[in-house]
Design a binder for these strands. Structure first.
Lengths: 232, 232
DNA sequence: CGGGACGTTGATAACTTTCAACCGGGGTGG
DNA sequence: CCACCCCGGTTGAAAGTTATCAACGTCCCG
């Protein structure tokens, strides 16, 4: 990672956004910005935890490895998002890895300062609590889907979730450039299987493709595929 | 649920344990204890969130339903544990269900009071943050396992995790009485498949059975089956 | 005694991964 | 500039895993 200064503006970072005005100078003094190249690993499972990261610009994938050439993407982080917070608490080692999906600038604060921030900014602590709660909900929903939902539904869910998080370009395609491999790792299946499911979704006219770009054509049907089947 | 009074003692509940002394009277005034019968549902997915629960005595399973007769057990809560906190944050409805595995006494506080407690007890908020972080780590580990680990490994992991949480009886059996169905729901597989895997584990002398009770015979080998395969 | 819930077992079907091969494009070195 | 190679995408066939279905047994409780 290459160090660079004065790129982070306070508005785009979770910490800055939720901290007291009086605390902002301290943040400014403590944070460090890094440029990260596409594909570069920011930290990986087992690394000792030294700090917490925020995405200033770009996109980051957070994932767990399995087996050298298999992984599960747990979450994506985009501009403004916090990541690396799984390093908090017991353990002292990151339980996950993070790498950049595109040229990215991350903002870094060391763990001691981060914990000091928690103590000083109750609102920040509260917001973080809410953030973790949402992550936990999503995580458990995904757990259940991995256990019970067939791959096709998981692909549908993955696509919807990507569009929700990253939005669409002017011509309606999901605004993220993701390899099929990464899409598969996000859906929790092999890339061949995901590929076949994508084909089915195309011929069923639920999505359409243009090169690697994906457009959701029939969002309602996709939702139906990915939907909670909750009753009683 | 049948209401009953004065059963909860302060030591066994997450909220009481982590709150300021001055706050304990307020808790005492606000909490309500309920007796819950074995198998009784405490709340279920979609129910409006009214409060947070603590286990006073007994055991509770927290799960997500799928499909009327399929579910995934996300977590167990035992004496002292908090549950229902997934109802925090946006949404206003529980994203999960909870029911008692045995006769249980739960302690309930309404959500407004709980949030007031957060504001008043920074240490409590911090502890809750740490708690959620650990849950998130576990949850993501389990996600990855569901995606990539074969059933046998997941069963091994489930058994180890049960023993870690509930300990063993004097004669070395895991100290929880769980139906095969529930074990399967925890491992994320059908009960037939789990049953076969248990048979394999028995004939490989990694576990032994006595009726429904399970004893881990070769914990190291089980761990190897369930282990992180992290490298690079 | 009957019924129901849970446990056990085997056979079969469905789904998903794995393996292997091919293709096309972009970049690199000659 | 071209040949080559490597990577990512695409496709088909086979193998492996897991779920489903069906049947039977047992125990407990009404």
């Amino acid at each position: 990672m290459k160090k660079s200064q004065n790129i982070c503006d306070n508005k785009s970072c979770f910490l800055c956004k939720n901290s007291l005005k009086e605390w902002l100078p301290a943040i400014a003094a403590h944070k460090t910005n890094f440029k990260v190249k596409k594909g570069e690993v920011i930290f990986k499972e087992g690394d000792p935890v030294t700090g917490i990261y925020f995405v200033n610009s770009g996109k980051v994938k957070v994932y767990k490895k399995w087996d050298k050439d298999k992984e599960l993407i747990v979450r994506f982080a985009k501009e403004g998002s916090l990541f690396g917070h799984r390093g908090l608490g017991k353990g002292g080692n990151y339980p996950i890895s993070a790498s950049a999906l595109e040229p990215t600038v991350v903002c870094y604060v060391d763990i001691a300062f981060f914990e000091a921030s928690l103590k000083v900014n109750p609102d920040f602590t509260y917001e973080l609590l809410m953030f973790l709660t949402e992550e936990l909900k999503q995580s458990e929903r995904k757990m259940r889907n991995l256990a019970h939902m067939p791959v096709k539904g998981r692909v549908a869910e993955a696509l919807i979730s990507l569009q929700n998080q990253f939005g669409t370009t002017a011509d309606g395609f999901i605004n993220i450039d993701l390899s099929r491999q990464d899409l598969a790792s996000y859906a929790g299946a092999t890339y061949e299987t995901v590929f076949r499911m994508m084909n089915e979704l195309v011929s069923e006219k639920l999505i359409s493709l243009s090169g690697k770009s994906i457009r959701l054509v029939n969002r309602d049907e996709l939702l139906k595929l990915a939907q909670d089947v909750v009753f009683l």
